[in-house]
């Protein structure tokens, strides 16, 4: 062996696994946070519904609080959190 690796400093970027670019409620891109937060990351995570729609958690919680029925704002199906 002429050369061996001693250490490696890699760089990776993370994104949310989402089926859309923007949150359907706040229209902000998923790469950034909801309007109430400052920094994207674990403080402002995404959630998926059983209907496979995806929102900022703060956005969907706010939406559900304001609605009499717990429906997905995109497809009007009953909203269920999908913890995958």
């Amino acid at each position: 062996m002429k050369v061996t690796i001693k250490s490696w400093t890699g760089v990776a970027t993370w994104r949310w696994i989402a089926n859309d670019d923007n949150c359907g409620i706040c229209r902000m891109p998923f790469d950034s946070c909801c309007p109430d937060c400052k920094l994207p990351g674990d403080e402002c995570p995404l959630v998926w519904g059983a209907c496979s729609h995806c929102f900022h958690i703060h956005c969907i919680v706010k939406w559900l609080h304001s609605q009499p029925q717990q429906q997905c704002p995109m497809c009007r199906q009953d909203w269920k959190f999908n913890n995958k």
Binding site: G10, A12, L39
Partner: peptide, 8 residues
């Protein structure tokens, strides 16, 4: 290995 994880 150490990795820098960047927010897009």
């Amino acid at each position: 290995l150490s990795v820098y994880i960047l927010t897009m």
